[in-house]
């Protein structure tokens, strides 16, 4: 596995594509999976992932740890995440700045956190606990949010910078989430990216979103069910040109297209990385 392969674009691994990937071995840099989909004992999920892992670098993206839960992370979940990480030896492990478990009930979404000093202490403690158990650094992703809270004390970018400094974690910059949150809260995504602590970024996510119009107001929703918007591509190009090349993932989780459509998005990201980084497409 070469270093430049890890600086390439990758794709979210979907069950719809895994047989084709094993047969055709498409020229993409790496794949990412959601950790929770591989916490069963056996069967086709592990069968296929082991084979994909033998051919490509893998990133493990957790969606259920609930790092922002005031009453503690999802019980027993860190151990299960460790089992997935130990088994598949990913080059990146990431989770979200969000919460989803409350009193043992799992609310299947990435729920928002108020950005306060108290939340920061809690999240930093949980990230530290996760990194200690996993024995490695993890990346924390900026979320798509649809509402803000009363009494917040700092912008998201300051929160993430402080979290990275305090816990030693890296960050996963989701450019689509920036666009979604910016539209929903009326801030300028370029200003957000100007303030973002890029020195901590170890991975970038790109995905499609929906715009829900009602009564003259629009909400952007992070749906991962379509191609990436022109605005997201433009911001991504700027980030790469100014801040350097990062492993970049195309996420497409709903209305999953045929493989060539997803691969086309990966290749588009790849060409942007190459232009900026001067990487040779055939190097890997």
């Amino acid at each position: 596995m070469t270093a430049d392969r890890l600086l390439r674009a990758g794709a979210g691994l979907k069950p719809e594509h895994q047989r084709h990937i094993l047969e055709a071995r498409p020229d993409v840099g790496w794949f990412e999976v959601h950790a929770e989909n591989y916490m069963g004992a056996g069967g086709p999920p592990h069968h296929f992932l082991e084979r994909v892992r033998a051919l490509y670098p893998l990133s493990v993206h957790g969606v259920g740890l609930s790092i922002g839960s005031a009453n503690g992370m999802a019980p027993g979940h860190l151990g299960r995440l460790k089992s997935v990480v130990d088994r598949y030896q990913p080059f990146i492990v990431s989770e979200h700045l969000a919460w989803s478990t409350h009193e043992g009930t799992f609310l299947n979404d990435l729920l928002p956190l108020p950005y306060t000093e108290a939340t920061l202490s809690l999240v930093a403690r949980h990230v530290d606990e996760a990194q200690t158990v996993l024995g490695r650094t993890i990346l924390i992703e900026n979320p798509s949010t649809y509402l803000r809270f009363d009494g917040e004390e700092m912008p998201e970018t300051d929160f993430l910078r402080a979290l990275a400094r305090r816990s030693g974690c890296g960050l996963l910059l989701d450019v689509n989430n920036v666009v979604v949150s910016a539209a929903n809260h009326g801030f300028d995504p370029r200003a957000y990216l100007e303030c973002f602590p890029h020195e901590h970024v170890g991975e970038i996510h790109l995905a499609g979103h929906a715009v829900l119009e009602s009564d003259g107001d629009a909400l952007y929703v992070d749906t991962h069910d379509r191609t990436i918007s022109a605005e997201v591509w433009s911001l991504f190009r700027d980030v790469i040109a100014r801040r350097g090349v990062r492993p970049t993932l195309i996420e497409w989780d709903a209305d999953v297209p045929a493989w060539p459509d997803l691969e086309a998005e990966v290749q588009r990201a790849q060409s942007i990385l190459q232009t900026a980084g001067g990487l040779d497409a055939r190097a890997a």
Binding site: H34, N108, S144, E251
Partner: peptide, 10 residues
């Protein structure tokens, strides 16, 4: 498994 990190469509 059905675990995802996105909203459920439109």
């Amino acid at each position: 498994g059905k675990n995802d990190c996105a909203a459920t469509g439109n």
